[in-house]
Nucleic acid binder design. Sequence first.
DNA 1: CGTATTCCTTACGTTAACGTCAACTCCCTC
DNA 2: GAGGGAGTTGACGTTAACGTAAGGAATACG
Lengths: 135, 135
Amino acid sequence: MPDTDRLMTIREMCDTYEVTPRTLRFYEAKELLSPNREGQKRLFTRRDRARLKLILRGKRFGFSLEEIRQLLELYHVGDQQQTQLARTLAIAKERLADMERQRNEFNEAINDLGEQIDWVTQTLASTAVSKDAAE
Amino acid sequence: MPDTDRLMTIREMCDTYEVTPRTLRFYEAKELLSPNREGQKRLFTRRDRARLKLILRGKRFGFSLEEIRQLLELYHVGDQQQTQLARTLAIAKERLADMERQRNEFNEAINDLGEQIDWVTQTLASTAVSKDAAE
DNA sequence: CGTATTCCTTACGTTAACGTCAACTCCCTC
DNA sequence: GAGGGAGTTGACGTTAACGTAAGGAATACG
């Protein structure tokens, strides 16, 4: 059995991905994850791990869990109906366009901030000099 | 008096920037804005407008209002002390590094999503064909 | 003068995304 | 068989960023 097919306990998951048990149970409640059960214990599959990675990445970009849930459907195609799939696809395309727009704004902001930092650095340097001169 | 120096009422602000009065009062309470008063009414200055724009942009990038408040200090240099200014500058540089890291991840995510969309589009097209053929 | 509009303050309500705590159930081991 | 961990299910608490509603002041209009 390849290592990637290992089932992980909640603790292993937490240590691996730096999340709390509460978080994983919360994601399950929100139907973002669906671990197996052994008795009442959760066992997380390869699929859960892949999804969790995407969830965490999505969060870093400021997506809500609900939005992420929609994106996850893209990675879970197989049993879906055509129309539903097409809808999901449309959503993903919109999201992609959003992200591209956001990236552009982001680049602007990075440039702005960089310039501002340069400016302040200059100011700081020159006032330090004039202060020296005054003493 | 140049138009940029006009004082704006709360409603003008709301219409211009598509925010609610509550939001503007909230930002004032958090010391992100500091409009003048005429009696008890707020009058927003050019400076408030500039700051509001930055606040809104910061929000689009997922910054918290507290983080934004720190960045705003960069745009309000003049009466500050050197040490305080230097600290602010350090914060801004970290923030810039964060943003650059985030941009890289972001680009990856955009590529991933794009590929995924292509893939699904393909799948959708070919299953549609085979479905046609089966009928 | 009445009332309509715009604004104000105060204060409680709401949503997302968990944190925290109590009370249980297994399973292991000493 | 008493205790110790790891895991479970409620259920209430928390923070950020406002929404919303109640009640009052100031100005404008007919």
